[in-house]
Design a protein around this nucleic acid. Sequence first.
DNA 1: CTGAAAGCGCTAACAG
DNA 2: CTGTTAGCGCTTTCAG
Lengths: 344, 344
Amino acid sequence: MAVTIYDIAKTAGTSHTTVSRALRGNAKISVEVRRNVQRIAAELGYRPDRTARMLKSGKTHSIGVLLPDFANPFHTEFLQAVQRLCQDRGYHLFPVDYRNDEKLERQALEHMLERRCDGCIASLMRFEPLRDLLQEFWDSRIPILVAGLPEDVGNTPVDGYREDFSVGIRQAIEHLVGLGHREIIFAGSWHEDAGVAGDRFEFLQAAYRDSGLTWSHDRIARHWTGDQLADGKASARIIFDKQPNTTAILGANDLFCVGLIRGLTDMGMSIPADVSLIGTDDTWTARYWPTPLTSISQDTESQATFAVETLLGRLESHQWQPSQCMTLNSELIIRESTAAPRTG
Amino acid sequence: MAVTIYDIAKTAGTSHTTVSRALRGNAKISVEVRRNVQRIAAELGYRPDRTARMLKSGKTHSIGVLLPDFANPFHTEFLQAVQRLCQDRGYHLFPVDYRNDEKLERQALEHMLERRCDGCIASLMRFEPLRDLLQEFWDSRIPILVAGLPEDVGNTPVDGYREDFSVGIRQAIEHLVGLGHREIIFAGSWHEDAGVAGDRFEFLQAAYRDSGLTWSHDRIARHWTGDQLADGKASARIIFDKQPNTTAILGANDLFCVGLIRGLTDMGMSIPADVSLIGTDDTWTARYWPTPLTSISQDTESQATFAVETLLGRLESHQWQPSQCMTLNSELIIRESTAAPRTG
DNA sequence: CTGAAAGCGCTAACAG
DNA sequence: CTGTTAGCGCTTTCAG
C-alpha cells in the first residue's frame, strides 16, 4: 500500500539500507546517490513510517503530558509552554486530558508506559494511589516529572516540582488584613484527599495566625464534583449560607474563581465592593476579567522550563541517580478584585 | 530490558504465540493456560509494546486532532467532546495544537501521516495551501475530517462540516436592529485570506441589507497577529478610532471577545450601556462572564458527534466513495450583553 | 487448542 | 561509500 524504502531502493537500483541512510543524511553517502534517492522518494510520495522507526530504535521522540482538564486555562498555558520548549529539542508532545477522573488518569499513565513515551510530565490529582505506576516508570527508565509533588513521596523515586504557596498565601492574607478584612475564606474544588491542597492548609493556618486572625476549619470551603466552573458557582451560596459575615475569598484556581464570580454575581454581590476575591494561577482569565483579579501567581514559564530541562536532561544523559524536586515561589499580584470591606 | 511475550513464554513453558493469544482473550485457549499466562504476565510486570502492535497490525487506534489553539475554550470544549465519544469506541486521541502557525499546522498534518494515525480531525486555518496533504490523506486511506470546510473544495476529496452562520448572523443583526442599533461592526482576528471567515461576509452583507442597513467594507474590522486576546484588546481602539459612532459589535470568537471587552473597559466603556456585544461560539466564557454574552452558538456536541461518527464510520466500513459534508445550524442565544443604544 | 515460521518497515552492526 | 544480514516485539497464517 504505502511506499517503503524498499520501493525506493528498487526504482533507484540500490539497497534499502542506502535509501535509509540517504534519506536521513547522517551517514556518508555519495552526493549523487543521495540526491537521486531523495528525488525518487519525493516522486513516489514516500513518508517514513514512524511506528517502524520507534520499534526499531526504541525511541519514540514523544513526551506524554498528562493534565487534569484542558478546559482550565492554567493547564493549557502550561501545555503550550512545554510545547514551545520541546519542539526545538525535537520532541513531540502527546497530551492527555484525564478530565479529573481518577480512572482515566491511571489508564492514561499506563497508556504512556505502553506507548513507550520517552518521558512524561504529569499533573496528578492524588499522588498516593499512583505510587506503583510511578515506580514502574522509574524501573522502565522512563523519566517522569510530577507537577505539584507532595512533600512526602516516601521512597518512590520521581522528579517533580512544587509550588511554595506559603509566600503567596501569606502576602494574600496580609494584603486582605491590611485592607481591613477579618473574615476570609479559602474556597476551592479539589478531591477530598488530594495531597497538594493539603500543603496549603498549613501555610494558610500559619498565615492566618500571624496576621492575628483566628483559625478554624470553617475557613475552608471545599466543594468537589469535578467541574470547576459549576463547583465555583455553587460555592458562592454555600459559603454565605455558612459564613454570612465573609468579606473576602481566596479561590483555589482561576477556573473555580470564574464560577465563583458567577455565583456571587447571581446573588447580587459585586466585586470588590461586597466581597474581595483573590485568584490562584494568574491565567488570562485573571488578567482579562472585567475586574482584573488579584492573584497568587504561579510562574508557568519556570515550571515548564524546569520540567522540560529536567526531563530531557535525564533522557539525554541517562542519569538515574537522585530524584530531583524543585520548589518554585508564588507571588501575589495585586489588581482590582480586592478592596476594603464594606463598613458596618 | 522490558519484559516481552518471550519472557512470559519461557517461564510459562509455552510458545510466545500462545502468550500473545492468551493475553488478548480473542482466540481459543484453554482456560488454565490462559490463567497461568496472565498470572505470570502480571508477576513479571508485562506491558504490551504498542509500537510493536502498531507496526504489525497496521492500526494505531489513534485519532489525530489538529486544532489551532488550546487556549481557546471553543477548541478545548470540542476536543473534550471528541474525546468522550472516542474513548468508548476504543480510540485514543492524539491532540495537536498548532498555535495558529501555518508552518506548524502543515508539519502536524505530515506528522499524523507518518505516525499512521487511523484517522484525523482537523480545524484548519486555510484550506487552500493544504490541498496536497488532504489529497495525500485520502490516497493513504486515512480518513480526515475538516472542521469549517469551505464551500469550494474543488476536487479535493475530504469529509467535513461547516457552520451555516447565515441564520445566526441574521438573527444577531435583526436583534441589534430591533434594539435600535444602526452602526454595527463585525470584528475579529483571522488570517488575511482564511476561507471560513470569507463565507460569513456574504451572510453579513445580506443580513445588513435585509435589515435596511447600508453595507460597506468598513463594517468589518480585522486585526490579526495570531493572539486572539491581544488582538481583541487592540481592536477596541482600532474600531472606535475609525468608526466612532459604533454602537454594537459582533465578535468573531469568544476569546477575541474577552480581549475586546478588556479593551473597551480600558477605554471606559461598559457593556451593554455604551456598546452592545455579541459573541460567537458560546463557550463557558460567554456563559460565565460577569455580563453573560449574547452569542451566536455553534453546537459543539453535534459537531463532535458528526466528526467522530463519520470518521469511525469510514474506518470501520472502508467506504471510500463519496466525501461528505454536513452543514450545521447556528443560533442566537440572547443574554445580557446587548441592549438599546444610548440615545443622543 | 497450540506451535513454527514469516514478516510489518525500519535501523544498525559488520563486512566488503 | 555500499550491501548483507539480523532483528525490534508483536500478530497472523498455516500446520499440527
